[in-house]
Structure formats: C-alpha cells, structure tokens
Amino acid sequence: MARLLVLACSATKRPDPGRLPALARYDGPLWRTLRAADPEGRAAKVAFLSAHYGFRDAATPIAEYDARLTQDLAERMIAGGVTTRWPRPPSPRRPDTCGIHPAAEIVSLTRHGTEPVEEIALVGGRLYVEVMHALVRGFVEMGCVRRDARVSVINGPIGRMRQDLRAWLAADRSRGGRP
C-alpha cells in the first residue's frame, strides 16, 4: 500500500552548516519521533510542508532558515495550489524560476502517478493542516492520490501528536506493508 506522511516543518533545526536532508535538518519532537519510530524509512514516504520551502520530499537537502507560517502565507499557498513554486522569488520583478512546485514533488514521490497514494497522514498545526488539505485535493485531481485514499489528521497537544504519529507509522508494520 502506498502511504504518505506529510509533516509540518519544525522551528527546531540542526544548526549544521550547508544543506542537510530535511529529515535530518528538522529536529523538533515530531521529527525525532519519526526517526525513532521508523529509522529505516519503511512505513511511508515522507514529505514536509514549510513556510519557506513549501511542499517537498523529506529527502530534499535544505539550509537552515527561520520562517513561520502565517494566516496570510497559508492563504497564498492555498491560492497558489499545486503549481506555485516555493520559495517565491526574492522580488516580484524577478523571473519565477525559484523553488519547485508541489505538483513536481508529488509526481516524483508517486513515480509519475503510477503508484498513487492510498493512505496519507497530515501532521501539524491548524494552518499547516489547512494548506496540506488543499494540496491533497490538487494531488487527487492529478491522480497522484487516490480519491478514496484514507486521510488521517494528526493535530493537537504535542504529546498526543507524538503518540498518534507513532501509532500511524506502526499500523503499516502490523499489516506487513511497505511504501
């Protein structure tokens, strides 16, 4: 079964210089839980949603940054849908050649839609989950997420989110599945 975990970025990041895969760069509680619960990365494909980088595969090398998802930015991400590149150009007068759009990332994660996502977990705060839901709707229209995909939302107090994330990851092992 094709599973996808979409995690919100983390304010806590490893300060290592240069670029690190997002899975290693982010060091908040949910990311530590992911690494501990699924150290070999077999339970699901993992992507992240960042106020700076947008929607990306967690294997993407990223630099340290400091950006928060605001209501305005969340609304712009939702309005931009799956075809708006993140990060945005540094100036509106510059060409839109920065970043990558969510559609390109999901196509890569699903092998050009030949392995559509059947189960997805959206993990993060309210604004992040709102943007994630909007992106999932676009991914369904692209054929990269099945219309009947099971969608789990993991949101709430951090302790509960960590428990729910661990349980979601373990559910794949109990069924014997692989991403």
Rank of each mutant, 00 (worst) to 15 (best):
residue 39 P to F: 12
residue 70 T to Y: 11
residue 127 L to W: 03
residue 76 R to P: 02
residue 44 A to H: 00
residue 172 D to I: 01
residue 34 L to K: 04
residue 42 R to V: 14
residue 175 R to G: 01
residue 138 G to Y: 07
residue 131 V to W: 02
residue 78 I to E: 07
residue 167 A to Y: 08
residue 108 S to Y: 02
residue 123 V to A: 08
residue 26 Y to S: 07
residue 129 V to D: 01
residue 4 L to C: 01
residue 88 R to T: 14
residue 38 D to H: 03
residue 42 R to F: 08
residue 129 V to W: 03
residue 83 T to D: 14
residue 110 T to N: 06
residue 36 A to F: 04
residue 158 I to V: 14
residue 168 W to G: 05
residue 177 G to L: 12
residue 52 H to T: 06
residue 108 S to C: 07
residue 130 E to M: 09
residue 178 R to F: 09
residue 147 R to L: 10
residue 145 V to D: 04
residue 135 L to M: 10
residue 83 T to A: 11
residue 62 I to A: 05
residue 177 G to Y: 05
residue 39 P to A: 12
residue 83 T to L: 12
residue 128 Y to L: 07
residue 86 W to S: 07
residue 71 Q to R: 15
residue 155 N to F: 05
residue 152 S to N: 08
residue 133 H to R: 15
residue 38 D to Y: 04
residue 155 N to D: 11
residue 122 L to S: 01
residue 51 A to Y: 04
residue 55 F to Y: 14
residue 105 E to T: 15
residue 157 P to R: 14
residue 174 S to V: 15
residue 69 L to Q: 03
residue 122 L to T: 03
residue 68 R to T: 14
residue 134 A to S: 15
residue 88 R to D: 12
residue 4 L to Q: 02
residue 154 I to M: 06
residue 29 P to K: 09
residue 80 G to M: 09
residue 109 L to K: 05
residue 174 S to P: 02
residue 23 L to N: 02
residue 159 G to Q: 08
residue 69 L to S: 04
residue 46 V to A: 05
residue 110 T to S: 11
residue 121 A to Y: 00
residue 40 E to R: 12
residue 168 W to M: 03
residue 144 C to Q: 01
residue 45 K to Q: 13
residue 46 V to W: 02
residue 42 R to A: 15
residue 51 A to N: 06
residue 1 M to G: 11
residue 115 E to S: 15
residue 48 F to D: 00
residue 81 G to R: 01
residue 97 T to H: 06
residue 122 L to A: 02
residue 58 A to W: 04
residue 3 R to F: 08
residue 144 C to L: 07
residue 51 A to E: 05
